[in-house]
């Protein structure tokens, strides 16, 4: 079985089958680039992901392994068309997978899924963040994401007034 060595930013190496790795758009491109530039067709590619640490990379690979037989979703799928993909594609396994994670890990996972071009994982993690936003009050958002208001004077009121032009369709 052809393998590829994927190395995290903090130096942990993961041996992954090329078939599995190619389910990530980014890793697929890197493997193909390696093949074109390498004289030895048997050589094992090695890819360093300098922005993703081991704990997160492990989670991405774990998710890919679980979903190895899913159809690959196009990364550039239209946003409007893509609405609902996350709900449709979210299995019980996905829910169990995400359940123990705190918001910080989820956000790292979103960045990793985006960077590695794993659309299914990106969908379910973005949907999880969305669930922390939709239906929440402004104060709840500030608490959940550790944010502080920096509006001054009547800026906040003015912003609210701008909203009156907009309607829910």
């Amino acid at each position: 079985m052809a393998l590829v060595r994927v190395i995290s930013s903090d130096g942990a190496a993961f041996l992954v089958s090329q078939r599995l790795a190619k389910r990530s758009g980014k890793l697929k491109t890197e493997i193909e680039t390696f093949r074109k530039s390498s004289d030895n067709s048997e050589a094992q590619p090695e890819i360093r992901i300098v922005t993703i640490r081991a704990e997160i990379l492990r989670l991405v690979l774990q998710w890919l392994q679980q979903h190895q037989n899913d159809p690959v979703l196009p990364a550039n799928q239209n946003e409007q068309d893509g609405r609902g993909d996350a709900e449709m594609g979210q299995s019980q396994w996905d829910r169990d997978f995400l359940a123990p994670m705190d918001l910080g890990i989820v956000m790292e996972l979103i960045l990793a899924a985006n960077h590695l071009e794993v659309k299914g994982l990106l969908d379910i993690t973005c949907k999880l963040v969305e669930s922390k936003i939709t239906g929440r009050t402004v104060d709840e958002i500030r608490t959940a994401f550790k944010l502080k208001s920096d509006f001054k004077g009547n800026e906040e009121e003015q912003t609210r007034l701008e909203n009156r032009w907009c309607v829910e369709n």
Partner: peptide, 13 residues
């Protein structure tokens, strides 16, 4: 067939 994903070693940073 199950695909392989193995953590093999730790590299110096």
């Amino acid at each position: 067939m199950e695909e392989t994903c193995i953590e093999v070693d730790q590299y110096p940073a």
